[in-house]
Design a protein around this nucleic acid. Structure first.
Lengths: 358, 358
DNA sequence: TTGTATGCGTTATCAG
DNA sequence: CTGATAACGCATACAA
């Protein structure tokens, strides 16, 4: 009746086998339920295991099956609602299929990403889901392929790698958002992102993050449709944190011909832009209209409620995991790229602008 | 010059040793940099490893060191900003110490938690951080102790287990929030939580989640201070999701003597309560005052900006990981319980109430 | 300093 | 159906 503080030495199959009076191999078969074992033996073995409090050592198991039933997930920022929600989708789908998740947060730092990928490979994950921080440094991602383990890109694509990728078809929605703004008379439309680049401006669109580049593509298409040329002075990067965002917004609104509308790249950017606008006493949508990417939970709670580009983020996570799982099972999905649709959700943050005939 | 698609068989120490013309043990020592190896041999071995593209198999390594350099983290809901931020803290601190994280989301379901803990144990994590969904079902947590692995509770405590716990000292702050409301004339103060209980009301406070119970303790103390007895009709559970929250709020505000203030248990509850109030046309703070637990990022963005109880969530995550790391290193922190301070952040969601002399 | 032999806990192979 | 025995890839006590 002593509290069984059976520390130290763990109970192994060998112990169970001895207790049940069978060979290790037989016990192993019964416990791992594979191969063939007589009902009689199985009962004794299971009883012994129960009595001894046997628990399999998954490390040892993984070692000679080659499968760890674990997938690596590498994202830039868990704090970002986008990734948190996608992670939830991945987690749910993975659990359903019996996989655990090793999560690594890279803070969008490529060096950290490189290390993370290497380590996950060393830990012998069965597959990986990565939101690559850069489309330029990709050797570590190539290593994943060379290791024979499946890799799925989340939210972002990388050219030149034979990879599967799951994300949102954001360009058309970005274009629709732009069109909506144009329809209400807007001509000076800004785009603000947290991404860093060499300069602070739009420099030819060679962005390292495809999902952000796609937003821009859509916006530019929308503008082009009515013959408005790209306006580099209205495309701003580096709005990372409130301070920098404040500077970006102040600078933008101090332009001789300031934007009448701002497209905000994600929920974090939206938060900071809204805060900055308030500080400057600039009212939405009276003084400036705004549209955010992502229909984050508080988007409808602001005053006015925000018009947004809604993305099926949870579903993206689930889809990414499902593709990976299929791959890990040796099946090959027909589609190499999955793009879920985004849609414009109209609320009240777009105001009308008198179309001043120039 | 063929793209080295060295699939199948992995490169092992044996291969490196052969290539370098030394014994396995020597190569192993050089690669794991322990023991003593001549500079000459080390150079040859490292060169061979580089040439062959050797990568250590951490599984095998873990097997006979007994350490996996991995910690398990079990939380109820990653979507909840609280856990997302705490996770970030844990992640940063763990990475700093060379640990990876296996993350499991239980959806606050105890059965899922039990499974998760067992599986993590089977995967031989070196330690665990758990935000237990219930203080009543704890056998699986006891198993962690019996396995000899350190366990740290996050945000919540469990009686009767010799565990370390890291969280926020929320009761005093809850009391301060209540006092602030009382100071402004409020007497009918409601508390709304997403937690489920047997009934929908306050039933003697035996909550399974200590951090929520602590909020209530603080509130009740604050009320008691001026002689207001506990008001079970104003304490509501089950505000889980917009729909249920809507019902809770509608019911609350339809009371013959409705609350003049509402304390919202966390950011998710706050979101839904605010949405519900808006739907009902109830204005903050004119018709009802609100205070939220957690200073989530958009708390200052609502109209009016929310008065909140701010918690050092990221720091809680870091502290939890640090305690665990110390434990895993065999050190014993002097404090068995770490409680970081919370504070009231006054913004504009508390209105004055005329103290009607009864 | 280096090499040999053994162990970690499973699964897998192949006789019996 | 069952039981020896050999992997799996690395670390480590011990001997040389």
């Amino acid at each position: 009746m002593v509290a069984s503080s059976q520390r130290r030495r763990e109970v192994t199959v060998a112990d169970v086998a001895r207790e049940a009076g069978v060979a290790k191999a037989t016990a192993s078969r019964a416990l791992g339920n594979y191969g063939a074992v007589s009902d009689d033996a199985r009962d004794r073995i299971l009883a012994a295991a129960e009595a001894l409090g046997y628990r399999p050592n998954e490390l040892a198991r993984s070692m000679n099956t080659g499968k760890s039933k674990t997938v690596g997930v590498v994202v830039g920022d868990i704090e970002n609602g986008y990734f948190a929600l996608a992670l939830r989708g991945i987690s749910d789908a993975a659990k359903r299929a019996g996989y655990d998740i090793i999560l690594v947060n890279t803070s969008e730092d490529v060096d950290a990403e490189v290390d993370a990928v290497r380590l996950l490979l060393d830990k012998r994950v069965d597959g990986m889901i990565v939101a690559p921080a850069s489309a330029y440094r990709v050797d570590h991602l190539r290593d994943v392929f060379d290791s024979g383990r499946p890799l799925v890109f989340l939210d972002r694509q990388v050219e030149g790698l034979p990879a599967f990728s799951v994300g949102v078809d954001i360009a058309p929605a970005a274009r629709a958002a732009t069109a909506a703004l144009i329809h209400d008379g807007h001509r000076r439309i800004a785009f603000v992102s947290a991404l860093g680049t060499d300069g602070d401006r739009y420099s030819g669109l060679p962005l390292g993050v495809s999902s952000v580049a796609d937003r821009l593509v859509g916006i530019l298409e929308g503008l082009e449709e009515i013959g408005i040329p790209a306006t580099p002075d209205l495309i701003r990067y580096g709005a990372d944190g409130l301070e920098k965002t404040r500077a970006v917004i102040a600078d933008l609104m101090a332009l001789s011909d300031p934007p009448t509308a701002i497209l905000m790249s994600d929920s974090l950017v939206a938060l900071n832009v809204l805060l900055a606008l308030r500080e400057l006493g600039i009212q939405v949508p009276k003084d400036v209209s705004v549209v955010a990417f992502d229909d984050f939970d508080w988007a409808a709670l602001t005053n006015p409620p925000l018009t947004v580009v809604a993305q099926p983020i949870y579903e993206v996570g689930v889809a990414a995991a499902d593709v990976l799982i299929r791959l890990m099972r040796g099946q090959t999905p027909e589609e190499t790229t999955v793009r879920l649709p985004a849609s414009l959700v109209r609320r009240d943050s777009i105001g009308r602008v008198a179309v001043a005939g120039r």
